[in-house]
């Protein structure tokens, strides 16, 4: 019953209207604050170290099979955490396009067995098995790291993330980071309402690039001006309340447990073994 209620609340949650294929920070925060599965109780440090291990793994791996296996494991973890799978596939759009934007050009004329060839005078394009492998390998590596990043964000409470940022980054990067993360939500709402106002006046329907560009530029300029004014107000309000220039994130982050150390060691050993000691056909 509780699960049904939670699912319903998540479904009703208003999504960002700016771009449906960009992960919605409101939804990410909702899951990270309300989630209850086992993965939400794992130390955030463990999840962060696992992210580093995954990045190392995809950087060292040259096999499509391994990339697909890693992606499947991460996807299962994501699904077991009760995170929205359908949304995840929508959010793949940007990484998918980014991989294609470069690899779609580079995958042609790779040395290997030809699969498809296109010839016009003075020009020929050949898609080989290696070209296709290149695209698929990069695509699965990309999906694995994106899925794990979102898993990390959506299973880690904001308090823990802010405490980690405070401990990892030096001053003033930590301060700017912590404040900007808070400001992002209000700025997004502000941009969203301005875009709505622009659309309600027929902004999205105009075809002239000049007029269109000018209107969006005014939205961006207003965002900057309002951000500046808000920053000024926030700074004065914080100073009036005793802000001395250091924003302290004092939340105690759960420590890495012995079982988590063991799991990380096992994962790292497995990765080293698979990358250096096992030969895969492709």
């Amino acid at each position: 019953m509780l699960l049904l209620f939670r699912r319903k609340s998540m479904g009703q949650y208003r999504m960002s209207e700016l771009s449906p294929h960009i992960p919605d920070l409101d939804l990410i925060t909702f899951y990270s604050e309300k989630g209850t599965s086992l993965f939400f109780r794992i130390s955030p440090w463990t999840k962060a170290i696992m992210l580093v291990l995954i990045i190392l793994f995809v950087s060292l791996d040259k096999s499509l099979i391994l990339a697909v296996c890693l992606y499947m494991i991460v996807l299962v973890l994501y699904g077991l955490s009760g995170l929205p799978i359908k949304k995840l596939f929508q959010w793949y759009m940007i990484p998918f396009l980014f991989v294609l934007s470069l690899v779609l050009i580079l995958m042609w004329n790779e040395p290997g067995s030809p699969i498809f060839s296109l010839s016009v005078p003075y020009f020929s394009l050949t898609l080989t098995d290696n070209g296709l492998l290149l695209m698929l390998t990069l695509l699965f590596k990309s999906f694995a790291s994106v899925t794990y990043s979102l898993f990390f964000l959506m299973t880690t409470r904001y308090n823990y993330l802010s405490a980690m940022i405070y401990r990892v980054f030096p001053f003033p990067i930590d301060q700017i980071f912590l404040m900007s993360y808070r400001f992002i939500f209000i700025t997004l709402k502000m941009v969203e309402s301005m875009i709505k106002a622009l659309r309600s006046r027929g902004g999205g329907l105009l075809k002239s690039a000049h007029r269109q560009g000018k209107m969006f530029a005014e939205v961006f300029a207003l965002t900057m001006i309002r951000s500046y004014d808000r920053a000024d107000r926030v700074n004065k309000a914080m100073e009036a309340r005793g802000f001395s220039g250091r924003y302290v994130a004092a939340t105690r982050i759960p420590r890495i447990g012995p079982g988590e150390y063991f799991s990380m060691l096992a994962v790292a050993t497995m990765m080293i073994y698979l990358i250096w000691f096992v030969r895969f056909p492709f």
Binding site: T187, V191, V234
Partner: peptide
């Protein structure tokens, strides 16, 4: 610091707008 944070947020928010 506050201004840089706001500019960061604005920059990130603007990136989300599809022109």
């Amino acid at each position: 610091i506050t201004l840089a944070a706001m500019l960061t947020a604005a920059s990130f928010a603007i990136f989300q707008v599809n022109i």
